[in-house]
Amino acid sequence: MESHSDIDQVSDDKPKNWDISRRKMIKMLGGATAAGLAVGYLPKALRAEPVAENAADFQVATDAESSERLRQWMMIIDLRRCDGCQSQGTPPQCTEACNMGHFVPKPMQWIEVYEHELSRDVGEIAPLDSSTTPPIEGTKFMPTPCMQCQNAPCVNVCPVGATWTTPEGITLIDQNRCIGCRMCMAACPYERRSFTWGEPPTSHAADFVEHSVEHQLPIQKGVVYKCDFCPEMARAGRLPFCASSCPQNAIYYGDLEEDLASNGDEVVRVSEFLAEHSAFRHKEELRTRPRVYYIDGHGELAGRDPKTHGTMPVRWNIDLDIKDGAKNWERSS
């Protein structure tokens, strides 16, 4: 009972401290207005919708499909057939076709063919003594486009919503919004993003194209680029450059919604094809959930000996008239 009276006493005192004068009232109102403004503005500032400038373009692409089911683009790369174009005696044709078709600025390779050691002991840890014999000798080639992750680390870290995953499952970049902070490049676990460090060495021809997030032309300085998975071409029923140019038909481009994929030669049912060949996704343990699947191999269906190393250096579409002030840089210094 004593404690109760104490509480009463305290509550009796309170009104004295909270004696609200008119001035105080005005001050509180001012504070409330400031708080209101902040609470009103911040959520807007902190919830970016992707592609403001290209909303029209992008809307057409998705609205057209909105009455129908949305395509869910994906890719299957059959490594059993990929020999890095060793048998052709050419640079990897997927990379070259992509470079030419997309006017990819010089050091970038939106789809890059990497030569992985079959034994994972080697190559991953560079300082290991190279005189040791790996348990499995030989290499395999791995064409590496953007993996189109469905839990994309790049999308998760972009501060301005300049990169986002479309309803069709493709991660695109709005170069008109990109601020060039390169956080996405640090976040990408597949190293699939490239930056235009200087004025890009592209031809004038690419400058006349109206900008779209789906083909990324014209190329700007100081922003990030990557494989865009060619959704425009796919919607028009054309395979991407990499898939259609592969001499071994190793690259299948498909649609998970229709459960079909094609390499330009045959059409397969994706679900069965993946299961039948125990397909995997690159660095699956990261749970980025890529849309690019691989069928393991080292070019055996193309008749490649895993101990033959190397691909020929790729070329770019830079023989045409190059922009003034274009710079040449390397992927890594």
Binding site: R238, G254, E258, L260, S262, G264, V267, R269
Partner: peptide, 12 residues
């Protein structure tokens, strides 16, 4: 019979 990406094929 399907036509996908301008490829006609018969899918099992």
């Amino acid at each position: 019979d399907v036509e996908f990406m301008n490829v006609t094929d018969s899918v099992e």
